[in-house]
Amino acid sequence: MTDTANTLYRRTPSPLHATLLAGTVPLFLGALLSDIAYFKTYEIQWSNFASWLIAGGLVFCGLALLFALVNLICAQPKTGRPLAYFLLLLLTWVLGLVNAFEHAKDAWASMPSSLIMSVIVTLLTCVATWIGLTNLRSGGAK
Score class of each variant (00 low, 15 high):
Thr92Val: 00
Leu53Gly: 08
Asn135Leu: 03
Ala84Asp: 10
Pro77Leu: 05
Cys74Phe: 14
Trp108Arg: 14
Gly140Lys: 01
Leu133Gly: 12
Cys74Ile: 10
Met111Asn: 11
Cys126His: 13
Ala50His: 05
Gln76Thr: 12
Asn48Glu: 14
Val127Phe: 03
Met111Gly: 09
Ile120Tyr: 05
Leu136Arg: 12
Ala107Val: 14
Val119Phe: 11
Leu53Ser: 10
Thr79Glu: 00
Leu133Thr: 10
Ser113Gly: 02
Ser114Asn: 15
Val98Ala: 06
Phe60Gly: 09
Met117Tyr: 11
Ala84Pro: 04
Thr79Trp: 00
Val94Asp: 01
Val70Asp: 13
Thr122Trp: 12
Leu97Phe: 11
Ser113Met: 13
Thr129Cys: 11
Leu83Val: 02
Ala64Trp: 03
Leu133Phe: 07
Val94Gln: 05
Leu87Arg: 09
Leu69Pro: 00
Gly139Glu: 09
Leu90Pro: 01
Thr79Ser: 04
Leu90Phe: 06
Leu53Trp: 07
Gly80Trp: 01
Phe86Met: 07
Leu87Thr: 13
Thr122Pro: 06
Thr134Ala: 05
Ala64Cys: 01
Gly139Tyr: 03
Trp93Pro: 00
Gln76Glu: 13
Thr129Leu: 08
Val121Arg: 06
Gly96Asn: 06
Cys126Pro: 00
Leu133Pro: 04
Trp130Met: 11
Leu58Tyr: 03
Leu89Pro: 02
Met117Ala: 07
Val121Gly: 03
Ala100Ile: 01
Phe101Glu: 13
Leu88Gln: 00
Ala84Cys: 08
Val94Arg: 06
Val94Trp: 11
Ile54His: 08
Val94Phe: 12
Gly139Val: 01
Leu66Gln: 07
Leu89Tyr: 06
Phe60Glu: 02
Ile120Thr: 09
Met117Arg: 13
Ile120Gly: 00
Ala55Gly: 08
Thr134Ser: 12
Thr129Ala: 13
Phe86Ser: 02
Pro112Val: 07
Phe101Arg: 11
Trp108Glu: 12
Glu102Leu: 11
Cys126Lys: 06
Leu124Ala: 05
Ile73Leu: 14
Pro77Gly: 07
Gly139Trp: 02
Leu91Met: 09
Leu136Met: 03
Ser51Thr: 15
Ala50Trp: 08
Val127Asn: 00
Ser51Met: 12
Ile54Phe: 06
Pro112Asn: 08
Met111His: 10
Lys105Met: 05
Leu91Ala: 10
Ser114Gln: 11
His103Trp: 07
Gly80Met: 00
Lys78Thr: 04
Asn48Ile: 14
Phe86Tyr: 08
Tyr85Glu: 15
Asn99Thr: 08
Arg81Lys: 15
Ala104Asp: 08
Arg81Gly: 05
Gly57Thr: 04
Ser110Glu: 05
Lys78Ile: 04
Trp108Lys: 15
Leu89Asp: 01
Ala128Gln: 02
Gly96Asp: 04
Ser114Phe: 02
Ala104Met: 00
Cys61Gln: 14
Phe86Val: 02
Leu58Val: 06
Ile73Trp: 10
Ser138Val: 15
Asp106Tyr: 10
Leu89Gln: 14
Val70Trp: 15
Ala100Gln: 15
Met111Val: 09
Phe86Trp: 13
His103Ile: 14
Leu69His: 06
Leu65Thr: 05
Ala55Tyr: 10
Val119Asp: 08
Ile131Gly: 09
Gly140Phe: 02
Gly57Ser: 01
Gly96Tyr: 04
Phe101Leu: 13
Ala68His: 09
Val119Gly: 06
Ser118Asp: 13
Leu91Asp: 01
Val59Ile: 15
Phe67Tyr: 12
Leu123Lys: 04
